[in-house]
Design a protein around this nucleic acid. Structure first.
Lengths: 341, 341
DNA sequence: TGTGTTCTCGTAAACGTTTACGGAAATCCG
DNA sequence: CGGATTTCCGTAAACGTTTACGAGAACACA
């Protein structure tokens, strides 16, 4: 069916070694024969078998991104990652690498799937997202010496791998500053209950900003919930029942914010009028919601490009002349002021 | 580094052939030796090299989904596909297949990327979405005899491949019926300008329903735009400037509807009050928009499962006892009445 | 002319599997 | 007990590449 390097060799009456060298642009092949090989390749519609090549070279020339759907929220997609993946893909393609997105089942937290990818050597490196504070995936990969990079920081694995994260601490702090400047004193914070690292960073920023302004942190105004709409819906009433009601809520996540607003609506509390609502990570949903939610926006597509760049810089096979480098970066979030605060 | 089948053989002092047979559960291996092999495999942390296996078997045991980001609309993700992919992945995993999502650059319409996947044999079959009326990808795949299935129908390729589509025609018709029942007579239709097949199906349903009620189809009420928010924003005023203004608009696409509503707002026209707005394919954005948009909702996750099932049934290697079957299905969309009409 | 260098190519091994084939040992059966 | 059958395993080839090695031819140079 598909033509192999042997077909080319037979067709041109030369050896497969020469064909391979010609195709791979090696120096020790006559310019004339190279020309003929390339023509024959086009004519016979040849393209190399990736399995054969991978087997020989021990490299698949592809990078895997582990995509994890939100558990328990079938209807809600993951618009967050698509622009990121677009950037990631674009940069990898420039270096001739394929991006493969490995889907996991919702909720299994990828460990099994990750093992499969690593152990069957389906990819040369992986990119992780939704990093946890203590992340077993990172432990696993560092232990095995498998190359990877992360979108998000973690305590696990030291600083032996490239990572790109958003400055959730600053965003949390800025959100508080802004609300304080607008006269709020009772500010609640709602974040995901899992060990997700950005939840800690956000809360750190929140706490520090309050303290900086001499305001005591009230544990009754901080709540953790499941990281989806249902979680926000469930947990928001809890902070609203604090003895001294908050006049503002900062949500760490768009889906939780939407659920929270639903709960507020049912309590007769109108975001933007009766209460200020701020969201840390902006998505299109925030923009279209009514009232439009004030939120902190990441530059996802450039981040994807950059993380690909950083990953490549850490791989010996792709690092430039100055050798491999492990880069860590933290990118700012941009405040998009809308109607909800 | 990673242990191979040779390591196991050496460790157990048996031949690699026996090891392979033991691992693959073939009959002609002693129960005792099989036990020892499996233990050794666990002990040495063995797992088969996918490249070697693929090379020998001529199959990668993975299915590729071609994911295409919307062009020109960086911020807007593609929440539509995630639940679909979740279902697809789940069903494939049950048959031991991996799902790999191949990202393309926005706008290149995948032809290049598809060629890469097919020609380098990175996957055993592919799943296509966003089918066009005349789809060069389908032509290419049928011509090459490469197995695939589609989410959506097409004129290309006959009925030689499994396809699962939504009943856009019925949805378009139902949408018109509903608006007519509510007293509207001037109903506009806005759909994507590309050759996307569902745009035709939708418009067919729209036209038929109008004719069925004896209402003439006014070309001035039909407009095509770029399939994103900007497209909806740009094209909506065109139908609003018809000599006899429409009192209702049906959008074929959520993003176009959102852009259209923005344009309407700027014209001082309020959806849900001054004009009825219906969307054919519901996404979370429709639910959160204000006013919440009446829309027709697909069951994406079950559709993903089903299309995987249908694809497997068409593959000789996976078809059940009754042999391979090419299945075509068209699934209904469910009307979700909200506030915008 | 003889020696050394450069250019170009063929040979063959290797990557990690699976599997067709055959053979030795064990078992069965009349 | 002898032949037939079954059980189990080793051998080796094959999948499609890449690449180390070496060899022949052409060329340069003294």
């Amino acid at each position: 069916m598909a033509s192999s390097i042997h077909d080319l060799a037979r067709h041109l009456n030369i050896s497969i070694g020469t064909v391979s060298r010609a195709l791979n642009g090696r120096a020790d092949v006559n310019a004339d024969t190279r020309q003929r090989v390339l023509e024959a390749a086009r004519e016979l519609n040849y393209s190399p078998n990736q399995s054969g090549r991978s087997l020989r070279q021990g490299a698949t020339r592809s990078i895997a991104f582990m995509l994890q759907p939100h558990p328990g929220d079938q209807e809600y997609g993951e618009p967050f990652f698509i622009p990121f993946l677009t950037g990631l893909q674009a940069r990898l393609a420039e270096s001739g690498l394929d991006l493969i997105v490995v889907m996991g089942a919702p909720g299994d937290y990828q460990q099994e799937r990750l093992r499969r990818v690593v152990e069957t050597r389906r990819a040369d490196a992986v990119v992780l997202a939704w990093t946890r504070r203590e992340d077993e995936r990172i432990d696993y990969l560092t232990e095995r010496g498998f190359p990877f990079a992360t979108l998000g920081r973690s305590r696990s694995g030291g600083s032996s791998y490239p990572s790109l994260d958003l400055d959730f601490e600053k965003a949390g702090s800025d959100a508080v500053d802004r609300l304080l400047a607008r006269g709020h004193r009772r500010i609640a914070a709602i974040r995901p209950a899992l060990d997700l690292n950005f939840g800690y960073l956000f809360l750190d920023g929140y706490r520090k900003a309050l303290k900086r302004h001499g305001i005591e942190v009230d544990p009754g105004l901080i709540a953790d919930g499941f990281i989806n709409e249902a979680g926000g819906y469930q947990v928001t009433p809890r902070v609203m029942l604090a003895k001294d009601r908050p006049t503002a809520i900062i949500f760490n996540n768009d889906a939780m914010a939407l659920g929270g607003c639903k709960a507020l609506a049912e309590m007769g509390i109108r975001p933007g009028h009766d209460i200020a609502v701020t969201v840390i990570v902006d998505t299109p949903l925030c923009r279209y919601f009514s009232p439009a939610l004030t939120a902190f926006r990441p530059s996802l597509e450039p981040m994807g490009r950059r993380l690909a760049e950083m990953l490549l810089a850490s791989l010996p096979a792709f690092a430039g002349p100055e050798g491999t480098r492990i880069i860590h970066e933290v990118w700012p979030l941009e405040l998009i002021a809308r109607e909800s605060d």
